[in-house]
Computed example of a mutant assay.
Amino acid sequence: MRSFDTLNDLVACVGEEVAVSDWITVTQDQVNRFADATGDHQWIHVDVERAKAGPFGSPIAHGFLTLSLIPVFFDTAFDIRQSGMGVNYGLNKVRFTAPVPVGSRLRARMTLMAAMPIEHHGFQMTWGVSVEREGVDKPVCIAEALVRSYP
């Protein structure tokens, strides 16, 4: 895990790959709970037997489940010692570029693309996030995430 003392130290990294997260394993239980939370019970996610005979050969995670892991990736990749809070501000671009079979291990590479000062001595940061599946060259999700961080 990479550590920064202040937000200013992090902002000095604009244009750089700042960190790579820990690996996270996507489980069927997690997929089922996500389906219950969102109401998306499509068989390719939750019907294990049917999904085995389907186009992916096994159940796959929801694209939005993969996207929802971004905060966990951030938490395991770096910390800012003198930071009060951060909030999700939105997304500019999102693409689900490959399926995530249940049991896959994922991690994210985070590049700080831009940072601009905002009220209360904070920064709005634009992050390039590339979610990788272990053993596969092509990312499974590419997103531009907007985060507002405050000291």
Rank of each mutant, 00 (worst) to 15 (best):
A115P: 04
V129T: 05
Y150H: 05
D40W: 01
A61N: 11
I142S: 12
D137S: 14
I80N: 09
D22E: 14
A143I: 13
P101H: 04
I142H: 15
A98S: 07
T27H: 08
T126D: 02
R2E: 02
F56T: 10
A51Y: 15
G15Q: 09
A108L: 01
P139C: 05
A53G: 09
V140F: 12
V87W: 05
D9T: 10
A115I: 01
C13S: 14
Q42N: 09
R33K: 02
F56E: 04
T76C: 15
R148P: 07
E132F: 05
L146N: 03
M1T: 08
E119K: 13
T38L: 15
F56N: 02
L10K: 15
T111D: 08
R95N: 09
I60K: 04
S58T: 11
D5G: 04
T66M: 08
L69A: 12
R50F: 04
D9P: 12
F56M: 14
W43G: 08
G54T: 10
V18W: 09
P71L: 08
L7F: 02
R109D: 09
P139K: 02
G57C: 06
A114P: 07
S58V: 06
D22N: 11
R2W: 03
R95L: 00
S68G: 14
L91F: 09
V102G: 06
P139Q: 01
L112H: 04
W127H: 13
M113S: 08
F56K: 09
P71W: 05
F56G: 02
P99L: 09
A108V: 04
M85G: 07
R50A: 13
Q42I: 03
P101C: 05
E132G: 00
D29H: 14
Q82I: 03
T111C: 10
E16R: 07
S83V: 06
R133Q: 07
F4S: 12
G122C: 04
V18Y: 08
D40K: 00
N88Y: 12
I80R: 11
D40F: 02
L7A: 05
S83A: 06
F74A: 10
V131Y: 00
S104R: 06
P99K: 10
N92D: 14
T76I: 10
R81F: 03
A108C: 05
T126V: 12
L7T: 08
Y89L: 15
F78N: 00
F73Y: 04
I70Y: 14
D36W: 14
E49D: 14
T111H: 03
D29L: 05
I70F: 03
